[in-house]
Design a protein around this nucleic acid. Structure first.
Length: 190
DNA sequence: ATAGAGATTGCCT
DNA sequence: GGCAATCTCTATA
């Protein structure tokens, strides 16, 4: 919980356990915070396991995707295109891997620090309006892979500050993939 | 062993 | 709208 703010709490493991397609829309309007920098989640995508051809976990466990097979509520941070980090919240049912990719935030606090880490961003929204952009802005890299977001000692937090998820989020197909595009597993705040 | 694609971004025309 | 940057994994030999 953020010092001094009433009604703000970390999400618990139980509410992150379950089908990632169901957990994903519930993460909308939750808050990610690292140090003084924080933002509200406004776009996510669900990735499952053996039945999801676009998932990193589709062909089983590797060193890279191991976090997707671990307990719900930990971070799965992966390196992509040889340059960028992307962050997921691990969420799945017992026995099947899964995660929710955080695709975009709305900046809340620490914008000056974010801007320092993202010198190419021209507008405020550009700080955190992409999965690799928000990792850059929040300072999330491979050292965060496997961190437990439900543990009060971890430096990064996933918070409920009392703003409910949208009753009717925008739902459409996932982006940036070539297989599994028929699945409507992308969720956005309107 | 080697090649090709990938849950992206920013710069180029 | 096209394309390079360049790590990880998978498929093929």
């Amino acid at each position: 919980m953020v010092a001094g703010s009433i009604g703000t709490r970390r999400l618990g493991r139980a509410e992150l356990s379950g089908d990632p397609v169901l957990v994903a829309p519930r993460l909308l309007n939750k808050v990610v915070r690292h140090g003084s920098r924080s933002g509200r989640i406004i776009e996510v995508e669900a990735y499952r396991g053996s039945d999801d051809p676009a998932s990193h976990a589709h062909r089983g466990r590797t060193d890279r995707n191991a976090a997707m097979f671990g307990p719900p509520g930990v971070l799965y941070v992966y390196f992509v295109y040889g340059m960028h980090w992307c962050a997921n919240v691990v969420a799945h049912e017992p026995g099947e891997p899964g995660a929710v990719l955080i695709r975009a935030l709305e900046p809340m606090t620490g914008m000056d620090e974010m801007a320092a880490l993202r010198p190419l961003a021209r507008r405020r929204a550009d700080l955190v309006n992409g999965p690799a952009k928000l990792c850059q802005a929040l300072g999330i890299d491979g050292t965060f892979d496997g961190m437990d977001l439900t543990d009060g000692a971890s430096p990064i937090e996933l918070l409920d500050d009392g703003v409910a998820p949208p009753v009717a989020p925008l739902v459409d197909h996932r982006v940036g993939i070539s297989v599994g595009r028929d699945l409507a597993w992308r969720f956005r705040v309107r």
